[in-house]
């Protein structure tokens, strides 16, 4: 039994807004605890729709989402129970901040979960801690923070639900390099510390290459590929045809292959590439 599984999910918007939002057609995939899955696809490929289906914000027209084996829509009245288990961080989540203090804002979801005051306290503190903000921030107004800090507070608001599946829609959009690194590390740490499953939507091939074990490739609302990261990136042409690209380092290796170098080697991250190249130089020197 998978932690979270989508089976033949389909959904379409039946309004004028469909020009902007794409439908989802017949998507199946599953996620296990402790996995990080990347979802990639061009703008309008249905990523955002899929994310909202996964945590029960949208109800599928056909197909189903199973959380720990249970169809999340079995009892529509209980749907919010699943929304707490399957946390969804929207794109630019800082726009959802509304409370007077950071503490109150992070406590919003735990309060809706009807937890005890003590438990809420614990959760807010640990969530602040997870996003690398110290307790001094708790009493500040979220509107006085910098862009990167707001983003982290908003993510903390979801982490405080202790979701077993954490879904993030482009969590690094608009951040500078330092902010990006901080957020990506936070996500990795949350997974390490809680064993949660992570689903991350990203436009950055470099980020997903460094972070994700598996990738789900979407195009025009359909799942084109769902496989291990390196297997997905080995299908260069399929990626290009669907408006995607290789990580920069992989492109360098593709070029090297064309020149006849390192033909049987491939790397997707700078670290891997460095090792391969250093090894082959040293190996080359040894052979000589």
């Amino acid at each position: 039994m998978s932690l979270l599984a989508a089976e033949n999910l389909s959904f379409s918007y039946n309004s004028a807004a469909k020009i902007k939002k794409m439908a989802v057609k017949d998507i199946s995939f599953s996620v296990e605890s402790g996995e990080i899955i990347g979802v990639i696809g061009h703008t309008g490929s249905g990523k955002s729709t899929l994310m909202q289906l996964l945590n029960g914000l949208l109800k599928p027209e056909s197909g189903a989402v199973y959380f720990e084996g249970q169809n999340i829509w079995d009892n529509p009245k209980e749907i919010s129970k699943f929304r707490f288990q399957i946390g969804l961080v929207f794109q630019y989540p800082e726009y959802q901040l509304f409370e007077e203090t950071v503490y109150k804002d992070i406590a919003f979801a735990p309060q809706n979960m009807k937890l005890s005051q003590e438990e809420i306290d614990n959760r807010v503190n640990s969530a602040l801690n997870s996003v690398g903000l110290n307790y001094e921030f708790a009493e500040k107004s979220p509107f006085d923070l910098s862009g990167g800090e707001k983003r982290r507070v908003a993510i903390a608001g979801i982490l405080a639900m202790h979701p077993k599946v954490l879904i993030l829609d482009e969590p690094t959009a608009g951040l500078d390099p330092k902010g990006r690194a901080t957020v990506l590390n936070m996500i990795r740490d949350y997974k390490e510390n809680t064993g949660a499953a992570i689903i991350i939507v990203s436009h950055s091939m470099e980020d997903v290459a460094a972070l994700c074990e598996k990738l789900l490739v979407l195009s025009n609302g359909r799942a084109v590929m769902f496989d291990k990261t390196e297997n997905v990136f080995s299908q260069y042409e399929t990626l290009i045809n669907n408006g995607l690209d290789l990580p920069s380092v992989a492109k360098i290796f593709e070029e090297l292959h064309k020149l006849g170098y390192l033909k049987d080697k491939m790397a997707y991250t700078v670290d891997d590439a460095k090792k391969i190249i250093v090894d082959s130089i040293k190996g080359g020197a040894l052979n000589a």
Binding site: R83, F84, P93, Q96, F108, A109, N112, G157
Partner: peptide
């Protein structure tokens, strides 16, 4: 309208009724 929709969805994801 789009923004309202998005904010409503994000708060619902945090259990707002």
């Amino acid at each position: 309208i789009e923004e309202t929709d998005k904010i409503m969805s994000s708060q619902k994801a945090r259990g707002a009724s």
